[in-house]
């Protein structure tokens, strides 16, 4: 029996909360995260994603969901396209604690929009619990998010919030697949 693999990529700049998001999900969902990953100390942050975070969730005997976290630092940008190849959808996480942090995400978001223009995705505005958090319409405007793409508030440390965002992305992927099957 061939095993079906759903590939979901968690993208976003350095420090946006991608690793935290996958970690929070793994507290609730049976996600295996023991697949080898590499951590190292860079730029004063205790640990950062150098290669990719990886989570695997078995839904049925023949259906597995793979989560890939993309390294946010610009100097690993040559890997973004390689990691994202073949993905069914991506979650783009931004640190929304200040306008500067949101602006820092613009380059990476444009990269994904240019290279994967039709791939379903959701933008997640992380750190919405911070008092200085930027509101959703402003984030949409800064990132020039297309009107049909959802921008959702996220608190990556909160299980409910993380699950809600993941399910929303999956619903977007499902809608896209239905639309594609209609066009065939």
């Amino acid at each position: 029996m061939p095993i079906k693999t759903i590939k979901i990529v968690i993208a976003g700049p350095y420090g946006a909360g991608k690793t935290t998001f996958v970690k929070t999900l793994s507290e609730v969902l049976p996600i295996e995260t023991d697949v080898p990953i590499m951590k190292s100390s860079i730029d004063g942050k205790k640990s950062t994603t150098v290669a990719f975070d990886y989570g695997r969730m078995k839904v049925r005997e023949d259906l597995v969901v793979h989560l890939f976290g993309i390294p946010g630092q610009e100097r690993f940008s040559f890997m973004w396209k390689i990691i994202a190849r073949g993905m069914h959808g991506y979650l783009f996480i931004v640190d929304s604690s200040s306008e500067e942090r949101v602006k820092e995400a613009l380059g990476m978001y444009n990269f994904f929009r240019e290279n994967f223009p039709s791939t379903p995705h959701v933008v997640a505005a992380n750190k919405q619990d911070v008092p200085t958090a930027v509101d959703i319409p402003t984030i949409k405007s800064i990132l020039k998010v297309p009107y049909e793409v959802k921008v959702m508030p996220l608190i990556a440390t909160n299980r409910r919030s993380a699950l809600f965002v993941l399910v929303t992305l999956l619903e977007e992927i499902r809608s896209y697949l239905i639309e594609m099957s209609r066009l065939r």
């Binding site: 079906k4 793979h66 990691i83 073949g86 999956l170 499902r174 697949l177």
Partner: peptide
């Protein structure tokens, strides 16, 4: 290290099952 070979088509029903 990174490439995933995905050659089995995913259907809306599969996504529904994941949700």
């Amino acid at each position: 290290e990174v490439i995933e070979v995905i050659n089995v088509e995913i259907t809306p029903k599969d996504i529904e099952d994941v949700i």
